[in-house]
Write a protein that binds this DNA or RNA. Structure first.
Length: 281
DNA sequence: CTCCTGTCCTGCCGGC
DNA sequence: TGCCGGCAGGACAGGA
């Protein structure tokens, strides 16, 4: 499912393909996703030129020449794919929005579970929109360091797992990368968030950046395979240390799995957490 | 304010 | 084989 690295990968491919291009035709095949589509979506998009395309948290922002911004969230099953310009568009199940640009470029939003969202908002209103207001720092930016994270976590009684899932603390992390980062930082998902300070916070920040960068790197290969591949996560899913690996050995494990039970799976905040009780404290 | 729970949706998988 | 229940997950509303 698309978390920060997947969205980053999508935007990296989308930006050069559509920047400066004009939206010639719009196909709207759905009344909405998690939220209803904006009124007059088709009319408001057609004829507009794309100024730029960027990512914030897990959102894709496509700014248009009428000072409106098309905001997309891929939910957990959403895909935004670019169609080869030679091939005619063939509608697929769960294609909700089809954008046709000059030059034969077509972008298709497909989302089976419809957990995604689409907004069309004024450029001046992005920061105050409910999706962006109060959003925490970008984890890959330099400003996101141990000190900043420690301050954000201070006083929090909830667990570090739940806190890292909170987009107000840090933006763009989802269940998978939180589990992975906590493993690399050696921090238990059950630890109280407020106790992650100083060296621990710094170590966690490094782990977050490390796992995100690695995933983005692998996400590049996901995208290359994308046209032929059907794997949602592509390449990086084979590199998970703990996520989805309950009962198995964690990387570098030298304990007796038959006695320890290996990687443990628990539920926190209604979501699965995977961790190694011996390496994560 | 913080924390917690329910809701949305559909594909997939395990169990019978 | 086929059905069915449960699970997966991000964001957000609303209640405590």
């Amino acid at each position: 499912m698309p978390e920060l690295p997947e969205v980053e990968t999508v935007v990296s491919a989308l930006r050069p393909a559509i920047k400066g291009r004009v939206i010639r035709a719009v196909g709207v095949h759905q009344k909405g996703l998690r939220v209803p589509f904006p009124r007059g979506l088709k009319q408001r998009l057609e004829g507009r030129r794309v100024r730029d395309c960027r990512r914030r948290a897990k959102y894709i922002l496509i700014s248009l020449d009428n000072d409106e911004v098309l905001v997309l969230h891929l939910g957990m099953s959403g895909r935004l794919s670019l169609l080869p310009s030679r091939k005619p568009y063939k509608p697929q199940k769960h294609d909700h929005l089809v954008l046709s640009f000059n030059g034969g470029i077509t972008a298709v939003l497909n989302d089976p579970r419809r957990f995604g969202a689409l907004y069309l908002i004024p450029a001046t209103g992005v920061d105050t929109h409910k999706a962006f207001a109060g959003l925490g720092p970008e984890p890959l930016e330099r400003a996101f360091d141990g000190k900043l994270l420690g301050e954000a976590l201070a006083g929090r009684k909830t667990t570090i797992k739940v806190a890292l899932m909170d987009q107000k603390i840090v933006a763009g992390l989802g269940n998978i990368y939180v589990c992975e980062a906590l493993f690399y930082a050696g921090i238990s998902p059950l630890r109280r968030a407020g106790t992650v300070q100083g060296q621990k916070a710094q170590k966690l920040v490094r782990a977050i950046k490390r796992v995100l960068r690695a995933a983005i790197k692998a996400g590049g290969s996901t995208l290359k395979d994308y046209r032929q591949a059907n794997g949602e996560l592509g390449y990086f899913q084979h590199k998970f240390a703990v996520y989805g690996r309950a009962g198995q050995a964690c990387p570098g494990c030298d304990c007796d799995i038959s006695k320890t039970g290996g990687i443990r799976q628990i539920t926190q905040g209604g979501r699965s957490s995977f961790y190694c009780p011996r390496k994560q404290k």
